[in-house]
Every structure is written in C-alpha cells, then in structure tokens.
Computed example of a mutant assay.
Amino acid sequence: MKLSILDQAPVLSGKTPQDALKESMKLAQCGEKLGYTRYWIAEHHDFPGLASSAPEVMLGYIGANTSKIRIGAGAILLPHYKPYKVAETFNMLATLFPNRIDLGIGRAPGGSAEASIALSGNFLENVQNMPNSIKELLHFLYNNYPSDQMFSKITAHPFPSVAPVPWILGTSEKSAVQAAENGTAYAFGHFMSDKDGVEIVNTYRSTFRNNGGIQDPQVIVTISAICAQTTEQAEELALCWFLSKIQTDKGEKNNGIPTIEEVRNYSITSEEEGRIQEMRKKMIIGNPKEVKQQLVELQSMYNADEIMIVTITPSYESRKKSYELIAEEIW
C-alpha cells in the first residue's frame, strides 16, 4: 500500500506559526525516512490556527531539507491566481527539485469571503472560469499551447526537464469530471465529503482521457486518521481535534487544539456529542492494527492507487507518532 501525508500546518496550543512551519518540515523529513510516497501541504487564508497561506514558499523550504520524497501543494487554490504565475512557480520548484514536484489544483476559497476578495477580487466569477483556467495552466506546464493562440509565444520559465505532475483535488463529481477531461491525476477528499466517493472516483476512471499528461488514471483518496498505541489513547487525541473544530465552526476564539488534560475536564453537551459522532464517520481512529484494517478496507473500497493521511493532534509529537505507527504496521 502506498501512503502519503497531507499537512495543514496546525498551530497548536502554546505554539507559534513559526513553530508550526518548522514542525511541518520535520514531518516531511519523518515521512521520507518512513517511506511515505509524498508530502503535500494545504493552502488556507486568515486562519490563525493554520500556518500555511503560501504552500509554494513552504515547498522550497521542505524541498531543500529532504532529498527524495515527492512534495506538493494540496492544493493551490487556482481561482485566486493567474495560471501563468502558478506554472512559473511550480516550474521553478521542479527545476530545483527534479522529478519530485506535484501541483494539486483546487477551487475552494480556503478562507473567508473577505480574504477571497483581498486575494483575487470576484471569487465566484473566477470559479466559473475554472475550466478555462485549468486548461490554460496545463498548456503552460506542458508548454504545448496551439500555435494560433497568443500565449503560444511565451514559456513559463525556467522550464524543467520533468514537469510538475498536476492533480485535481475535489470532493464532488464536478472535480472528477474536470480531472478526467483534462487527463490529470485525481485526489478525492474522503475526509471532507458527504457524497458517494466511490461513485465519484469511478466516474473519473471511466471518463478519463489521455491528453498528453499521465497515461492512465491515478487516484489518491485522502482520509483523516489518528493512530496511537491503544484505542483509548487514539480516542482521546481525536476528541481534542473534535472540540477544536466545534469551537471554530461556532466562531468561538480558538487558541489551538485543547490538550488532553483540558479535554478530560471539559463537559461535552448533547449537541456537541452529536457533532462529534458525525465527524467520526469521516475519520479512522484506533491502535495500529485497527487503523491498518480500516485503511486496507478504504483502499479496497475505492480501488485507490494511494491513501493520503491528514493527522491533527494536540501535540506535534503525537502527530508524528501516529504516522510512525501506521507505517510500521503496514510495511
């Protein structure tokens, strides 16, 4: 089974954004040592609890401190940017770190409406233009603009010997169809979607077109997972994340994920308990054997080429340990 890491660069209680970003680099190094296939870092805006607003900057830092693990954005939120600039940025990364760069492409705002306006003006209009933006970006990445079009006269320099590999990320059939029509790899966010993911992934595979990129359809399924030595320890770690997410969703001040000690002294309301049970449905929580079994079942259900794991716990040590335990159990 191929496993990879998705990092959201969480700023934990008592820690700073600088701490979070340094720990992200350490997580990538840990993943490389353990044998994870790739490390992706997400893009968020105006989230005090998440430190990565510019994945492309972090990838330069992480690439320089690793040697072989594939690294990428999960994802660059394309409606905020011009395709040519994205292509230049990732071509430069692919020049610095040959045959290691992935370019995940997403359409979510990644933050508040005000942040979206500050970034790119009319976000909804840019989303509507997303199909054209994807095609434009791919032409720049493959340097294959038709000669009768204006942009055929320019190249997204520096042009690398091996192009970044584009992945379209999504949680709906629309994203699957876009990936299939454009001939890109597809990453489905199981941990973020309430829809029939298997049907969505099957739609991608059945309608995939080879348009000059990858030869055959490739699928990553992303899942939120927390692993600890015992089921009880994993459940406590997960509860810390659940309560933090509930606070954020309510618009309450969130100073980072609460510690295990804070959670043990917290009285959960019936409303919060219902929300926790809903979130649990999209997570894998348990000891190494339990987590392995559920990951194997998930891979089989989707017939996925790879499983990507996002893990947020109240300490960077327990996050790292979760990835270590999973790797040791599976490999």
Results as ranks from 00 to 15, higher is better:
I71T: 04
A185L: 09
T222S: 15
E88V: 12
L243S: 00
S24L: 10
A113P: 07
F208N: 03
A228M: 09
F159R: 00
A327C: 05
V296M: 14
P79C: 10
I284D: 05
I71D: 08
T66F: 00
Q128G: 10
A51Q: 03
E56V: 08
S52L: 03
T259V: 01
A73F: 06
I168V: 13
G104R: 00
P217Q: 09
S244Q: 12
I41E: 03
V198F: 02
K26D: 13
G49V: 06
K68L: 11
A163F: 08
Y39R: 09
F47P: 00
I268H: 06
L124R: 15
S53D: 01
N255R: 03
F208H: 06
S206A: 12
N287P: 00
T248V: 15
G274A: 01
K321L: 15
A176G: 05
A187Q: 06
M1W: 06
D148Q: 14
E88I: 11
T16V: 08
E23F: 06
R70E: 11
D249A: 14
K174V: 13
T230C: 04
V162M: 11
W167N: 02
W167T: 05
I257D: 06
Q128C: 07
L77D: 10
K281Q: 15
N65Q: 15
I276Q: 01
H45S: 03
E236I: 04
T313Q: 10
Q29Y: 06
S116L: 07
